[in-house]
């Protein structure tokens, strides 16, 4: 797409201390493009929750953000264990995070529900043993 800005970030697995850096980078870029602060905030929540998911569950992955004139599309791709039951994973409070992660305040089962709440469209494609791709669209107007 000609009218598109693409930003890509590698998210390292198992490293919660750096989680949020991709989200921070995206925010800076969106501010420069002059997007409405409320749109930037929704994108940052989606990005951050997605980043954390990849860190905790999938040993990392790639975050790609395409900023178009009408919307921001976030694509999170990992080669992790996959989600056996997507409907269940979408339920608020459902979690498979280890206790060690939950003790840190993560893995409360709100990741995917929050991503759905803050985006205008969300699709989750997952194959057990292969990986997961989450696509979120946040409309600008």
């Amino acid at each position: 797409m000609d009218d598109c800005i693409t930003l890509t970030y590698q998210v390292e697995g198992g490293d919660l201390s750096h989680a949020g850096e991709a989200s921070s980078g995206v925010k800076q870029a969106l501010r420069k493009l002059g997007l409405d602060p409320s749109v930037i905030r929704r994108v940052s929540v989606c990005m951050y929750e997605g980043e954390i998911n990849m860190v905790i569950h999938a040993n990392g992955g790639t975050a790609r953000v395409d900023v178009g004139l009408d919307d921001v599309t976030i694509t999170l791709t990992d080669t992790g264990p996959g989600i056996p039951d997507i409907d269940k994973a979408m339920q608020a409070g459902f979690t498979t995070a280890a206790d060690s992660v939950r003790d840190l305040g993560f893995g409360a089962g709100m990741g995917l529900p929050n991503m759905k709440k803050y985006s205008d469209e969300m699709t989750v494609e997952s194959t057990v043993g292969v990986g997961t791709t989450v696509t979120m669209v946040v409309r600008i107007e």
Binding site: D3, R31, L33
Partner: peptide
Amino acid sequence: EFLPTFQLDSNRRRAMEKMRAIQ
């Protein structure tokens, strides 16, 4: 008030062109 001092251009299409050039 919000001061959009980091904005590259008030026109989003031009802002995107500038960002591509920066990248």
